[in-house]
Amino acid sequence: MSDIETWRALLSGRNTDEVVTKALVRDVPLPGGAGTMALITLDNGFDHTKPNTFGPHGLFALEEALSEIAARTDLAAVGVTGKPFIFAVGADLKGAAAVASREEAEAIGALGHHVFRRLGELPVPTFAFVNGAAMGGGLEIALHCAYRTISSGVPAVALPECFLGLVPGWGGTQLLPRLIGPANAIKLIIENPLSQNRMIKGADAYKLGVADAMFEPADFLEESLRWAARVVKGEVTVERQEHDGWDKAVADARFLVDMKLRGASPAPYRALDLIALAATASRDEGFAAETQALADLLMGDELRAGLYSFDLVQRRAKR
C-alpha cells in the first residue's frame, strides 16, 4: 500500500464525530489575463463560531482536492483561503486527545506534512489568502504556500501548540524560522504561547514578514487576486532573506524557557531543538523530526492535562 492508503486505513475509522473541513475548489480567472487559478476554500459548513480545523478526514479531503488539481495542466496558480472570518485554526484537539497509540500519533504527523507540503511542491505558484483567524495548522498550511497575503482585519495569528503541550508539528518549526528569522519565529512559537497564549493581529504578522502583502477586509480577496496575478506575470518579485543568528536566538530562548518552566514541560524544549535543526536540516529531515516530536508529545501526560485544562476553561466554562 502507498503511504496515503496506510494512513487512511489506520486513521479513517477513528474520531467519527470530527467536523470535517472540506476543500471546495473553484476556477477563478486572474486579472490581466494571467491565467486561471484553482482557488481552494476551507469550509466546515458552519459559521465563524465553529472554526475550520483539521482532523484525519479533513486532511484526506484536502489531499483528494490537491490530487485533482495536480493532474491539471491548464492552471497558472493555486490559491487557498477560508470561510468568512476564519482561515483555519489547526488540528482537531478533540481528535488529538483520542490518539490511542504511537502508530496513530506518527500517522497524524506524517499525514499533515504530506498533504500540506503538496501546496508548496505543485508545479505552479501557490498562494495563501489569509482572510481570518489563522492558528496552529491553519498558519502552517499558509507557510507551505509559496506566497501569502493577509487581511488587516485578521484578529488572531498564532502557533499556540507549546501552550497546550505540543509543538507545531506540520512544518511550523522548520518553515517559519527560515521565512522570518529564528528570533522572530521563537516569539510566535515559544514566547507568545508561554505568555498566556498571546496572539498577534494581521498587521503585526505582515510586519514580521509572515505575509508578503496586506489588504483591507472589504475587498481582500479581489486585491489578493490582483496581487497574485502580478506575481504570476512577473510584475512583482518577492525577495526572501537569508537569516543568521540561530545559535544566539536559540540560546536566549532556552534561558527564557528555563526561567519560566524549570524543565517542567517538555514541549517548549522540543520546539527549540526543532528550530535549531531548521538552520541546517533538509525539508525531509526537519519534517521527520517534527513528526517524531509530535508523536512523543501526543502520547505524554502533559498534553492530556493541557487539553483537559484548555477544554475546561474554553468550552465547558462557556456552557
Rank of each mutant, 00 (worst) to 15 (best):
I40D: 01
G58R: 00
G169F: 02
A61K: 04
A88D: 03
I86Q: 03
G13S: 08
R8L: 00
Q241H: 15
A279R: 11
G136L: 06
A185K: 06
A305F: 07
R315Q: 15
P155D: 12
V28Q: 13
I190L: 10
G132Q: 06
A34L: 13
G234F: 09
M37Q: 14
S67E: 14
T280Q: 12
A249M: 04
G172C: 09
E68K: 11
Y147H: 13
A158F: 06
H48I: 09
A229M: 08
G202Y: 07
K83R: 14
D43P: 10
G209T: 08
N52Y: 01
E290G: 03
T280P: 04
T73F: 14
A156T: 08
A305L: 13
C162V: 15
R240W: 04
L298P: 02
A133R: 12
A100Q: 14
T149P: 04
K248W: 09
L66P: 03
S12H: 08
L11F: 01
P168L: 05
V25K: 07
C145T: 12
A9G: 01
L175K: 11
F287G: 02
D273Q: 10
R230G: 10
L143W: 04
P168G: 06
L119P: 01
R72D: 09
T126D: 04
L159C: 11
L39V: 05
L75T: 12
A205E: 11
L10S: 00
E161H: 15
Y147T: 03
L143R: 05
E161Y: 11
K233E: 11
F54R: 00
P177C: 13
S309L: 15
G79K: 06
